[in-house]
Design a protein around this nucleic acid. Structure first.
Length: 194
DNA sequence: CAAGAGATCATCT
DNA sequence: GATGATCTCTTGA
């Protein structure tokens, strides 16, 4: 079943942990792709210097200030897209970055889009998974609690064992850079970095 | 295997 | 005008 808005309205750290073991579903004219979420990162609000919302309310961060359960997709390094899901109540700018997926359905399509056969590196990183699932800026702001082009599904899987690590690529964030807010499923072969 | 460069552009100063 | 919530390829041990 599709995760409801109340799921995303929880604290960002809880959402980041509870998304592990859930399934990201993407429907596209070329086909359906599904991946099991194995790695996430929490960006908890404007006071978190690693969070884009720390720059204030701008055209780019606008979605994060809105209601939970919406997709925040941004373009980075002139090359890749990254997918986040907005959390907490309206006005509280926070989100969870989806960092890695274990390919589940539509694997051939993902291989085609990524130009590789290797399952363990098909979606093992925020940029890679967006390529594999055809996620780009046209999905920015999409409501993931309504419609069926992009959403997260609970398939009744028991809660996985979780490991917490510092977030990746946020060395500029001062005292926030070492917060252990990157969450991985313990032992998964599909994460971006062990 | 580890380290480094380059790709390439929206966003903010 | 600088830089980034990344990835791939190349180089060298």
């Amino acid at each position: 079943m599709k995760l409801p808005r109340s799921f995303y309205a929880q604290s960002t750290l809880q959402v980041a942990r509870q998304l592990l073991g859930k399934y990201l579903v993407r429907r596209h004219p070329d086909g359906k792709t599904v991946g099991r979420i194995v790695e996430t990162e929490a960006y908890v609000g404007p006071h978190d210097l690693a969070c884009h919302a720390a720059k204030g309310r701008t055209a780019r961060t606008e979605v994060m200030f809105g209601p939970p359960g919406h997709a925040y997709v941004y373009f980075i390094y002139g090359v890749y897209y990254c997918l986040n899901i907005v959390t907490e109540e309206v006005g509280h700018a926070s989100a969870v970055l989806i960092r890695a997926l274990e390919p589940v359905e539509g694997i051939e399509l993902m291989q085609q889009r990524r130009g590789t056969q290797k399952l363990h590196s098909l979606a093992s990183g925020p940029g890679k998974l967006c390529l594999a699932m055809a996620i780009d800026k046209t999905l920015n702001g999409v409501d993931m609690c309504r419609g069926n082009i992009l959403y997260v599904e609970d398939r009744g899987e028991p809660r996985p064992k979780i490991v917490a690590r510092p977030r990746i690529g946020v060395d500029y964030a001062g005292k926030w850079k070492d917060k252990p807010w990157r969450f991985l499923i313990r032992g998964s072969e599909f994460v971006s970095k062990p």
